[in-house]
């Protein structure tokens, strides 16, 4: 087993090295190094909005996109948030919707007083329509429960 694996690897390595040296013409060689994105802000917003708006989005994908958004240096646009909340509704996950609102609020950072009211105002109609309570209405703007100590 080990032997055959080794011989396969060496065979594959040999053929791939031999072939690439013939195959790749110099003109098509591009440096695949730079990760600079040429995507504009509007394109990013549209991409995420359409991602969340997909009818067959599942729990894995919606969480992935939300986590990704939380990792970016931005506050999601209201239209992305609206699409995400509607996706939560399609997936029947109320907790996820509130959690995402909390995350968005947290993303506002030091400008929370300026940005968060604007977002609430923009997404207010959707919140009404889906009967989603804001974290403030849920009482989650202040700590509610303490963690029980695991040592007791």
């Amino acid at each position: 087993m080990f032997r055959s694996a080794l011989s396969r690897v060496s065979h594959a390595a040999k053929t791939s090295i031999m072939q690439t040296s013939y195959r790749v013409p110099a003109v098509t060689v591009t440096r695949g190094m730079s990760k600079h994105s040429t995507e504009t802000d509007a394109e990013l917003d549209a991409r995420y909005e359409s991602y969340f708006s997909r009818a067959d989005i599942d729990g894995w994908e919606i969480r992935k996109a939300m986590n990704d958004l939380c990792g970016m240096d931005l506050v999601p646009e209201p239209k992305i948030i609206i699409a995400a909340l509607k996706a939560c509704r399609r997936l029947n996950d109320y907790a996820l919707a509130v959690r995402f609102l909390e995350a968005v609020k947290d993303k506002c950072g030091v400008k929370q007083k300026e940005i968060y009211p604007y977002i609430l105002q923009e997404i207010g109609a959707t919140l009404q329509e889906l009967s989603i309570d804001t974290p403030e209405v849920m009482g989650y703007d202040k700590p509610e429960l303490a963690l029980a100590s695991i040592y007791e």
Partner: peptide, 9 residues
């Protein structure tokens, strides 16, 4: 049921 702590916690 989904989450342990809220953000403020």
């Amino acid at each position: 049921a989904s989450f342990c702590q809220t953000f403020s916690e």
